[in-house]
C-alpha cells in the first residue's frame, strides 16, 4: 500500500496511461449536508450533495419542479461517480463543483457559466483518473414546467442525422437515441415527464462528437446515444463497466485517497 499523491495521478493524465490502481466507489462516503438539494431558479441550476444516488436526486429534483436526464442512469449510482463512469454526462451537466483532492484539500471550480482562468478544475472529477472526489455539485437542470418531449422513429442513419441537426441548432436540452427511437427534450409548454429509466441500465459512457453523424450512427448501433445539443456534447451509454477508475479509497476517509498499485500489491 502506498499513499497516492496528486503528482502520480497528474502523470497518469499527462501520459494517458491506463490506470495502475483500482478505485472502489463503495468505499467513499460523502457525508450529506443539511440541504441535500437547493435550487438556483434564476439560472436553472440545482445545488446537490454529491453523495445522492441518481434515484434520490431524480426524486428530490422532481419535488423541486426540475428534470434532469440522470434518471436514465443506474439508480444506485452516486453523483460523485458520475464524472468517473459517465464523464461526458458530468461534463455537460456539472456547472461547478466543490471537491476534496486525494491529498485531502478542498477545491472549488469557478461558479460561473464559463470562465477563462486557467486549466478547468472540473477536470479533477472527470474521467478514470480523478484527482478529487466531488462533495457538492451545481447541476444544470430544467424546470418541469418548460419541458417538452418529442419522439421520432427511423433508421439509425436517419436518426443520427437528425440528432446531428439538433446539435447544430443547439436548442434542445437533451436527446436520447435508443432502439430506433429518438426522444428529444426541449423547451415547450407541455408538462411532459422526463425520460424513463433505461433497462438494463448503462454501466459506463464515452464521448462522441455530436457533429459527427457517422460516429453517432455507429454508436446507436452498439448502444444508446445521449446528447446535450445545447452544449454540443454527445456520448454513448454502454452496458460494460468501462475503463477501471484509477484510485482506491479507504473506508472512512473520503478526503484521503489511498492507492494500492498492481505492482505494489503483488
Amino acid at each position: 500500500m502506498r499513499r497516492l499523491t496528486l503528482d502520480d495521478i497528474a502523470l497518469c493524465l499527462r501520459a494517458g496511461e491506463s490506470a495502475a490502481v483500482l478505485f472502489d466507489p463503495a468505499q467513499v462516503t460523502v457525508v450529506p449536508g443539511d440541504a441535500p438539494c437547493t435550487t438556483q431558479s434564476a439560472d436553472q441550476l440545482l445545488d446537490v450533495d454529491a453523495g445522492l444516488t441518481m434515484a434520490e436526486l431524480t426524486e428530490t429534483a422532481r419535488a423541486a419542479g426540475y428534470r434532469t436526464p440522470l434518471s436514465l442512469l443506474p439508480d444506485g449510482l452516486r453523483v460523485f461517480e458520475l464524472g468517473w463512469r459517465f464523464p461526458f454526462v458530468a461534463e455537460a451537466l456539472f456547472h461547478s463543483v466543490s471537491a476534496v483532492t486525494c491529498d485531502g484539500e478542498p477545491l472549488h471550480s469557478p461558479r460561473a457559466p464559463r470562465s477563462a482562468v486557467g486549466p478547468d478544475l472540473l477536470g479533477a472529477v472527470l474521467g478514470p483518473h480523478p484527482l478529487a472526489v466531488a462533495t457538492r455539485v451545481r447541476l444544470r437542470a430544467m424546470p418541469q414546467s418548460h419541458c417538452q418531449r418529442t419522439t421520432h422513429r427511423g433508421s439509425a442513419a436517419e436518426l443520427a442525422a437528425r440528432l446531428c441537426g439538433l446539435v447544430h441548432k443547439g436548442a434542445a436540452r437533451w436527446a436520447l437515441l435508443d432502439e430506433g427511437v429518438l426522444h428529444v427534450v426541449g423547451v415547450g409548454t407541455a408538462q411532459a415527464p422526463a425520460l424513463d429509466a433505461l433497462r438494463p441500465p448503462p454501466m459506463s459512457g464515452r464521448a462522441v462528437s455530436g457533429s459527427d453523424a457517422l460516429a453517432l450512427e455507429q454508436a446507436a448501433r452498439t448502444g444508446r446515444v445521449l446528447a446535450f445539443p445545447y452544449l454540443g456534447r454527445a456520448g454513448v451509454l454502454r452496458t460494460d463497466p468501462g475503463p477501471a477508475v484509477g484510485l482506491a479509497l479507504p473506508a472512512a476517509a473520503a478526503a484521503t485517497l489511498v492507492a494500492a498499485t498492481a505492482q505494489e500489491g503483488a
Binding site: 499527462r14 494517458g16 461526458f88 477563462a116 478547468d120 480523478p130
Partner: peptide, 29 residues
Amino acid sequence: VNGRGDIIEAHLDDDRTGPAALRFLVGSE
C-alpha cells in the same frame, strides 16, 4: 509539446483519460 519535450495529444473522446486531460490543457496560456 509539453515542457518535458514530449509530444502530447488529448481528446474529448479518449476513453483512457476521459475529457479531463483536454480540460486541463485548454486555457493553460
